[in-house]
């Protein structure tokens, strides 16, 4: 689904990613773990070309999604971002109603059929395991929801335009354990339909939600394997030292 080949990435002179070759499968959850500043978010942002927005950056290597190099000139960036949803660490709903947050992407894409939009909003809120909690507040401001609910709303907003890939950058790190558990449960549910890549600094979370885990350090991919293997019997000493907390 997502394949990277010999990726090097630079912020000015600083090389944030070093020769990363990796392949992520469809309908699986891939987690990136590693100490902060190791390049997880930078790598994730490559997949929907979010790094393009930062001045002075440079990319070498290839990033193929569904077999196409997404950095090719022929790529339509809006279509790419529609196909690849992203959820951030801090919930960032628009200052609109719950309903309009989810409907937004549909409207932007030119859909006007009210019945279709209403059905789609409900369906998506259900997919994000939020509908029951907000069905009486659909027209209230999104900011009236709790942090965990806001985050699920952001997931719903991303899902509304029917992407095939969902990128999540520490989606639960600002949430309490109950909200975190709901998000993790949701991730399990969503992988049936979507390909999910999640960055987390919480190793136990990676262990709980992902099928495969990539361990990054100082811009390098140190180890990439099945999550079960990674947490029972990692190949590399460095991985073992990191996940058992033997560093520092």
């Amino acid at each position: 689904m997502i394949v990277t080949k010999n990726i090097n990435f630079y912020y000015g002179d600083f090389q944030a990613l070093k020769n990363i070759t990796m392949s992520m499968d469809a309908n699986t959850v891939t987690a990136f773990i590693g100490p902060s500043g190791c390049g997880k978010s930078t790598f994730l942002r490559l997949f929907n070309r979010m790094n393009d927005l930062i001045d002075g950056t440079r990319l070498e290597g290839e990033c193929l999604i569904k077999g196409k190099n997404i950095y090719d000139k022929s790529i339509n960036i809006d279509a790419l971002r529609k196909d690849i949803g992203m959820v951030f660490q801090k919930p960032n709903p628009f200052p609109k109603s719950v309903f309009e947050n989810v409907a937004y992407g549909l409207r932007v894409n030119g859909i006007k059929d009210k019945k279709f939009i209403a059905d789609k909003v409900e369906e998506t809120l259900k997919a994000a395991a939020l509908f029951e909690e907000v069905k009486d507040k659909l027209h209230k401001s999104a900011f009236e929801l709790s942090g965990g609910q806001q985050q699920r709303l952001c997931i719903a907003r991303a899902l509304a335009v029917e992407p095939s890939i969902l990128l999540m950058d520490e989606p639960a790190s600002a949430l309490d354990p109950i909200s975190t558990a709901k998000i993790e449960e949701l991730i399990h549910e969503l992988k049936k339909k979507y390909t999910i890549v999640i960055v987390t600094h919480n190793m136990q979370q990676a262990a709980r939600v992902s099928d495969k885990t990539g361990f990054f350090m100082l811009g390098e991919l140190i180890e990439y394997s099945d999550t079960k293997k990674m947490f029972l019997n990692p190949d590399k000493e460095t991985t073992q030292n990191y996940i058992t907390g033997r560093f520092g």
Binding site: Q204, A207, F231, L232, N233, I243, T244
Partner: peptide, 8 residues
């Protein structure tokens, strides 16, 4: 929550 060699 031990993992890897600690868990084993």
């Amino acid at each position: 929550n031990p993992v890897a060699i600690d868990l084993r």
